[in-house]
Every structure is written in structure tokens, then in C-alpha cells.
Amino acid sequence: MIAIIDYEMGNLRSVQKAFEAVGHSAVVTRDPKVIDRASRVVLPGVGAFGDCMANLNRFGLVEPICQSIARGKPFLGICLGLQVLFTESEEFGVHQGLNILGGKVKKFPCPSQQSASLKIPHMGWNTIHIKTPTPLLQGIQSDTHVYFVHSYYVEPSDPTVVCTETRYGISFVSSVWRDNIFAAQFHPEKSQRVGLQILRNFGVWH
């Protein structure tokens, strides 16, 4: 069973439905016991970093998430669920993250500071360039399009965790992979066939 962690941030139903569409059953939960029993854990999320950490703390979810990862369960972070794995974010002041991966969450340079005026949020379909092949990207070609919507990106201190990169004015890290953790800045649940393939892969990942 896949546990999708519900901390009142984002459209969790769409993640659940996407898993169901590829034949993996998933529950939306914030019950630590259910998370503990789950074979795989998904942390989705859209919204602000500070609110996300506040809600994870308020619902007592930090411990269950950290334990699941420490025990080696396959873990999928999506968007904000990628960002909170890192040490800290500069979104609306400095906020501490879960610090499971070292590094920072930074804002895209504002349009007036760029040569080409790029809109923020980075919203729409962009390509992922595969730096490190992972089982999660099996069946997916490099430079294929996936759906993004975000204004901040992660800067890992350990470059070996970088799985894919994407260009938007600058080149940024669009997914990371370390041991049992895979986390993406893009939204597999909104990326049509390509995204569903990633979720299908996650359901059988060991």
C-alpha cells in the first residue's frame, strides 16, 4: 500500500487517482500508524515552504516521514515534497526544512534581473535532461516534457544526488535520487503518459 501524506497542502486526490490509473492502490492519510504500515510513502504538495513545515509539525508528521525514509521505504517527493527534504529555504524569510538532503531552496532570479524576461512562476511543460538514470525513469527518454509549476528550486550540496536538470533561464535540478528517495520538482500526476510511467515505476521500485 502506498501512503500519500495529507497535510492540507495541495491536490492530493489527483496524486491518488494517478496511482490508481496505473494499478497501484494508494491511501491519503495523516495517521502515523497508516504511514508506518505503508510499504511506500509519497509526500506531495503545493504552496509555501514555511506553511508546509508548519503543517507537518502541527500534524506530527515529521517523525513518521523521517522514520519511513530511515527504514528504507521507497519515498517519492513531489514539488514542495522535494523542497522540504532540504536543509533550508529562502521563501518568505529563512525556514528550516527536514534536512534529509543537504542544500538550499532558492528563488528564480526576478524578471528584471534576467537577460530574457522569464515569467515567474515557471509554469508549464519543460524538458528534463537525465544526468543519472534511475529505476524511476525507466522507459522515459531524456529531454522529454513534464509539467512544472513553481517559483523556487533546490540547490543540493551533494551533486551526486542530481537525477535530472531543466533549463529555465538558468539550469536547475528538476529531480533528485538518493538510495530509497526520489523527488521531483515537476508533477508526475499532471504529466500525462510520461508522468504516469514514473508513478508506475515507483509502485514496483525496490
Partner: peptide, 28 residues
């Protein structure tokens, strides 16, 4: 939302935060 896996925007007659919450929960 059960069958289509791309972003969905819904508009028309939205006046309260509760309207938004319901639509997002339904899959918008």
C-alpha cells in the same frame, strides 16, 4: 480528474474560499 492527467482550471461563479476548496478537492 479520474481519467485525464493534465492540469485542469475551473472558472465561473467562484466567490468564496469554500468554493475554491471544494473544486480543488474534486480535482481541479
Amino acid at each position: 480528474a479520474e481519467q485525464v492527467f493534465m492540469p485542469l482550471t475551473v472558472g465561473g461563479g467562484i466567490t468564496t474560499l469554500e468554493d475554491i476548496r471544494r473544486l480543488l478537492n474534486a480535482g481541479a
